[in-house]
């Protein structure tokens, strides 16, 4: 009986990575800026997107969204109220989105007709970090209620982010949110990252966020 070693040197997520690269090429060619929003369940991704979609549309931008959820289509219905095209991706138990799900749900959409495409990932701070969706910008969100040290507990996700958003700042005082500590822990994990402090309720911080989106879109061309 002979044994042999076969060298593979193959990424476990090779299929996902290849498809994500292909998607990124399509997005760039079409001139659409694609963002992947990741956070714990309940951080306020959908509320933040509702407001972002609405304000971008009021400014004449062409926007669309894909939203991942384990089972329901509640978030998609909330986002569709903005008037933007929205599709739900039900993952049926899978705790993250994969490039293949994104690709499949884009069918029939003319990407060149879009300026921005937002992907709301499944609420989870671990698994989505390993799956490239072809996005240009990964946004990690953190609410004032979930602990200032979240980034330290989930370094993988926060280190892979291109921008961070602190949500629900309208209730910061009520929950004794320590702003300096939160900024410090984001900076420890991802030094120099842009941080937006926002409220989807009052609209605070949205102007800076929308400016950032415009800059990033212009820079992509």
């Amino acid at each position: 009986m002979t044994t042999r070693i076969v060298e593979l040197r193959q990424g476990i997520l090779k299929k996902n990575d290849e498809l994500a690269r292909e998607l990124r090429g399509r997005f760039t060619a079409a001139g659409v800026l694609v963002l992947n929003l990741v956070s714990s369940p309940g951080t306020g991704k959908t509320a933040f997107l509702e407001r972002t979609l609405r304000e971008l549309r009021e400014n004449g931008a062409r926007v669309a969204a894909l939203v991942g959820d384990l089972e329901t289509d509640n978030d998609a219905r909330r986002l569709a109220a903005s008037g933007a095209p929205v599709r739900q991706i039900n993952t049926h138990g899978i705790c993250h989105l994969e490039a293949e799900m994104v690709s499949r749900h884009l069918e029939g959409w003319e990407l060149a007709d879009l300026d921005y495409l937002f992907i709301e990932n499944v609420g989870n701070l671990v698994c989505p970090s390993s799956y490239d969706l072809g996005e240009r910008i990964r946004v990690a969100l953190l609410s004032v209620t979930e602990g200032e040290d979240k980034p330290l507990k989930y370094p993988t996700l926060f280190n892979s982010a291109d921008a961070a958003v602190i949500t629900k700042i309208d209730i910061a005082a009520a929950v004794d949110f320590d702003r300096a500590l939160a900024l410090q822990s984001i900076d420890a994990i991802r030094p120099g990252i842009r941080v937006f402090e926002t409220s989807s309720r009052t609209g605070a911080g949205m102007a800076e966020w929308l400016d950032y989106l415009r800059q990033q879109r212009a820079a992509q061309k």
Partner: peptide, 8 residues
């Protein structure tokens, strides 16, 4: 996240 090698 890489499969380096297998022994068969």
């Amino acid at each position: 996240l890489e499969i380096e090698s297998i022994e068969i």
